[in-house]
């Protein structure tokens, strides 16, 4: 096994592309080292991307923020600007793992691990976040929702790495929220989760909404029917009930050690409802 520590994204991409064997990108390492320990993977090359220029920075861009791929949870949580604009994304990111894991884990890593239960991904998808990808053939921007293609599977091609994630600008009277269900209060993988982002008009009526569910399908699911259930409403009881139904109806989960199909289906609806209420309140709506 080799360990490389490139200083540019192009160099990183090239070395990953050139390696014929198994490769792993190392950012926070909180998934990669677990895989190494368990013997799940024996890479021939590990590329540590943390020393790529600019990859640990958070920069304002076009009214939004560009989050470097090696920004750790604790660093994003300390950024007042991002927290004010996208509180749901920040809280989702901060829910990953323990304080110790927060010191290392990254959103890009959470996304590239390809878990359907990744905490930050539903919030990023609901936010319409866009990943910047650098590969041997150049740079491209791809919506986060299009990156995972199945459990552990990504749409990235060999040699490609995510270098940053753009959280876009948003209209006034917008809010987002993320909730997950875990059996304990900390340290668990989400059994079901929901990220909701919405925008209100001056009267408090929802004009735009995105509802993304995690851990209830092979990939994070953006549920159009759930958005439709609340657009045009002030989140009255009927809208919330429709939202829950639409969210639950969109679930196709599995039974496993963390939860049952029935449990995930039910709880995804509950979380979508509760997250919508928080997002609504953050957008300035009152009920």
């Amino acid at each position: 096994m080799r360990y490389l520590r490139p200083n540019t994204a192009a160099e990183a991409a090239q070395s990953l592309a050139d390696e014929p064997g198994v490769t792993r990108v190392l950012a926070g390492g909180t998934d990669v080292l677990v895989q190494l320990k368990a013997g799940m993977v024996e890479p021939d090359l590990i590329v540590d991307i943390k020393h790529i220029d600019g990859i640990r920075s958070i920069t304002a861009e076009a009214g939004g923020f560009r989050i470097g791929a090696a920004v750790a949870g604790a660093e994003l949580g300390a950024h007042a600007g991002v927290k004010a604009l996208w509180p749901g994304v920040v809280e989702a990111f901060e829910l990953i793992g323990s304080t110790q894991v927060q010191g290392r884990c990254t959103m890009a890593g959470n996304l590239c691990n390809g878990s359907p239960a990744a905490d930050s991904v539903p919030a990023l998808v609901a936010a319409g976040a866009v990943a910047r990808i650098v590969g041997p053939k150049g740079t491209r921007d791809v919506p986060v929702r299009d990156i995972p293609t199945g459990p552990g599977k990504l749409s990235l091609t060999k040699g490609e790495i995510i270098t940053s994630i753009l959280l876009p600008a948003r209209p006034p009277r917008s809010g987002d929220a993320y909730l997950r269900f875990i059996p304990r209060t900390e340290m668990d993988i989400a059994v079901a989760s929901a990220g909701v982002s919405l925008t209100l008009d001056a009267a408090g009526k929802i004009t735009a909404a995105a509802v993304a569910l995690g851990a209830v399908a092979p990939t994070v699911r953006l549920v159009e029917a759930a958005s439709a259930a609340i657009i045009g409403t002030k989140l009255d009881d009927a809208a919330l009930s429709n939202l829950m139904q639409a969210a639950s109806a969109a679930c196709s989960p599995i039974d496993d050690k963390r939860g049952t199909i029935a449990f995930r289906t039910q709880v995804a609806g509950v979380l979508a409802k509760r997250a919508a209420l928080i997002a609504y309140s953050r957008a300035g709506g009152s009920k």
């Binding site: 059996p183 304990r184 340290m187 668990d188 993988i189």
Partner: peptide
Amino acid sequence: FLDYRVPV
């Protein structure tokens, strides 16, 4: 310890 859940 991830899925054998002792109290935290």
